[in-house]
Simulated scan of single mutants.
Amino acid sequence: MEPGGQDINLNSPNKGLLTDTMTDVPVGPAGSRVPADAAGAGLPEGLTEAEAEELQTELSKVEEEIQTLRQVLAAKERHSAELKRKLGQTPLNQLKMNLSKSLHEVQMSNAYVKTTEKLGEWNEKVTQSDAYKKTQETLSTAGQKTSAALSNVGSAISRRLGDMR
């Protein structure tokens, strides 16, 4: 059994059984399991006291099962984290793997493939157009002239600095 009083092993014949002390179950007046505020408020219409007590008992059992399942889940999460740590799977590595997988899925999607194809077609049309070719030639010529002018300015500055020495 676990230290908390419950056996959280789902395969155990004792699963969910509590020890003699039940500290988390609310106890109302005269030792009943009905909370004090519910006992004083009266019973809902059409519900006998025996039925209310039976429902309260069932509710307590369900809440105990929920608590047991939370403990089992917490234990499994700790065990999973320990296994990942032993395998060297850090949160950063897992994030990298998830991002890589997501990127691959996006690249394989129909929308991405079709968009890439369409952009390729547009690129081909644009680069083959006369306007693009003329603009490319003009910018290339302008770049060469700018480069030559900057080179001349650099040489002139170097000469002046040499003269100043």
Rank of each mutant, 00 (worst) to 15 (best):
I66C: 04
E121L: 06
A149L: 13
G16P: 02
K15F: 02
L95T: 05
S100Y: 14
E65H: 12
E124M: 13
Q56F: 13
T23G: 11
K86D: 01
L43N: 08
E65R: 08
K101W: 07
R33L: 14
S100C: 09
M1V: 12
S32A: 06
M108F: 07
T57H: 05
L43V: 11
T90W: 03
A75W: 01
A81N: 07
N9T: 08
V27E: 02
I66P: 02
L73G: 08
V27I: 15
A81Y: 00
Q56Y: 04
A74N: 15
Y132N: 13
E49T: 00
E51S: 08
D130I: 04
M1P: 14
T19S: 12
P44Q: 01
L95E: 11
K61P: 02
K86H: 06
G4Y: 07
R70N: 00
G28F: 01
N9H: 07
L69D: 02
A111L: 03
R78Y: 03
E82S: 08
V106A: 04
D7F: 00
L150H: 02
E105Q: 03
K61L: 06
L103I: 14
R165T: 11
S12T: 05
L59H: 14
A74I: 01
L92M: 08
K76R: 15
Q89D: 08
T57I: 13
S109L: 04
M1K: 07
N98V: 03
T57F: 06
E49C: 02
P26A: 13
W122L: 04
E45G: 15
E105W: 01
K118Q: 09
T146Q: 12
K101H: 10
S147N: 14
G42S: 04
E124I: 07
G143F: 10
E63C: 07
Q6F: 15
Q67H: 11
N152I: 04
D7A: 06
A111C: 01
E53N: 12
G42H: 08
G5V: 01
E51F: 06
T48Y: 09
L83Y: 05
K125F: 05
Q107K: 04
V72L: 00
M1H: 09
L18V: 03
E54Y: 06
N93R: 14
A36M: 12
Q107S: 04
K76V: 07
